[in-house]
Amino acid sequence: MDLSTRYLGLALRNPLVASASPLASTVPGVRRLVDAGVAAVVLPSLFEEQVHREQLRDLQLVEAHEHAFSEAATYFPSPSPSATQPGGAKRYLRLVERAVAAVDVPVIASLNGSTPGGWSLFAHAMQEAGAAAVELNITFVPGDPRTTGRQVEDRHVEILERVLENVSIPVAVKLGPYFSSPGELALRLDRTGARGLVLFNRFVQPDVDPEAMVVSPGFPLSTPVEAPLARTWIAVLHGHVGCSLAASTGVETAADVAAYLLAGADVVMSTSSLLRHGPEHASVLLDGLTDWLARKGFPGVDEARGRLAVPRDVDASAYERAGYVAALEHARETYGGVPGA
């Protein structure tokens, strides 16, 4: 069975990619994922804000007691000349270097920037460290209510442009679903030069614990019920964009992988199921995919890909609308009426 595929212009041995998660935060972790069969590994995101926070915190800790007393002007040695990227960035880049050296599949670095300079600086450093590609994890929360949707979209494009100016490796953009017209943004990013789109990002949603009376960080793992949204947009975009499409969210079983492929995904990313079941679950997914392809008579994933994508010549809105109406009909049949419908 030919599971090989291409993603961001990179040849992969199969369509299963380990997306950014703590599993890939160490070299042994990366190795375990690759040994279990994944075709590429996306490292956990480097968060520029966190780097800045750590830089400022460490500066404060160093300076808080300096030059206060005759016997000791300072309490720490000067930073080593090799401490060129304090605040965790160097550590991350070293992880990239070591992961690249440790495995024979593409290692994709992930970046969550917060300043224009930061995006390009760190993306370039990731390339220098040997990353096969960079995934931009653009988490822009428009807290100012006067910000327009267009401004948000423009910012995504600007970030991509700036990064592309500074790197020659492929760049993917991981998007959230919360745009008025995700498809149009996807096309813009594709035109700007993104080599891949990862659909979708799941945002951290802090919650309130009424018992402890604290805000809890909360980052629940995804479940297959969340997958249809991403699948729908992959189905819509397949064939409309030149760049790769990566499916992310709700991959629990081989069936979920297969469904994404049918919708048109070039690769399928998994985090939650690997966290839930361990990295070795990758082999379960791949075995299941192989079985499915065989059962359905596909010689390889390329043949299965996009079979259930929205046809290029169809009005996608009407198609989606039709699907929506059909879904309501189905619900009515199943439950005997849809509340509020």
Binding site: D58, S80, S82, A83, Q85, P86, G88, K90, L95
Partner: peptide
């Protein structure tokens, strides 16, 4: 503690 983090920044390995 910064006394340990400093080494991680300078020489992660």
């Amino acid at each position: 503690e910064l006394r340990y983090r400093m080494l991680r920044d300078a020489d992660p390995d």
